[in-house]
Simulated scan of single mutants.
Amino acid sequence: MTDVPHIMVVEARFHDDLAEELARGAVGELHRSGATYQRVPVPGVLEIPAAILYAVRSMDYYTARRRFDGYVALGCVIRGETTQYDVLCAESMRGVQDVALRYTLALGNGILTVENREQAWIRAAVGNRNRGGHAARACLDMIDLKRQFRLYPR
Rank of each mutant, 00 (worst) to 15 (best):
Y61V: 13
D16K: 12
A12F: 01
Y54E: 10
I7R: 03
G132A: 13
R147P: 00
I111G: 00
L18C: 09
R24D: 11
R117W: 04
A106G: 10
H31A: 14
D3K: 11
T113F: 04
A100D: 03
V114Q: 00
E91M: 15
G70C: 01
L30D: 03
M1A: 14
A64H: 09
M93A: 15
P49W: 03
N128C: 13
A73E: 01
W121N: 03
R57N: 12
K146A: 12
A26T: 11
Q97V: 13
L112S: 05
V87H: 05
A64T: 12
R129E: 15
Y85M: 01
R32E: 13
F14K: 06
A136M: 07
C76N: 02
R137E: 13
A26H: 07
V87Q: 02
R129G: 04
V99M: 04
Q84A: 13
Y62E: 15
Y103A: 07
Q84G: 03
A120H: 03
R150C: 07
R154S: 12
Y103P: 05
D86K: 05
C139M: 08
R117C: 09
T82W: 04
I122K: 12
Q97R: 14
S92T: 07
A106C: 11
I122C: 08
G34N: 09
R57W: 06
H31N: 13
V72Y: 00
H6Y: 15
L151Y: 02
P43R: 10
R123T: 00
H6S: 10
G28C: 08
F149T: 06
D17T: 10
L22A: 09
L74W: 04
D69A: 06
D60K: 13
Y103N: 08
A100G: 09
G108S: 08
A90V: 04
A106N: 09
T36I: 01
E21Y: 01
L53F: 05
R117V: 15
R79Q: 05
R39Q: 13
A19K: 02
H15G: 03
D16Y: 08
P49S: 02
A50G: 08
V27K: 02
R24E: 12
A23Q: 10
E21H: 00
I122D: 14
L88S: 06
V42A: 02
I111C: 05
C89E: 04
D98W: 07
V114C: 06
V10C: 11
D16L: 11
Y62K: 11
T104S: 15
G34R: 07
A138R: 09
G34C: 10
Y152T: 12
Y71F: 15
R129S: 11
G133T: 06
V27S: 02
Q97N: 14
N109C: 13
Y85I: 04
V114E: 04
G34T: 05
H6V: 04
F149R: 10
G95Y: 00
A138Y: 07
R102Y: 12
L53C: 07
L88Y: 11
Y37L: 13
E20W: 03
G108V: 07
Y54H: 12
L105Q: 05
P153T: 05
Y37W: 15
D86A: 11
R13E: 08
R57M: 14
P153I: 04
G132D: 10
I78K: 02
R79A: 08
L112G: 04
L101H: 08
A12Y: 00
Y61E: 14
A23R: 11
I48Q: 02
D69I: 03
P43F: 05
F14C: 06
R39I: 14
K146E: 08
L107P: 03
Q148L: 15
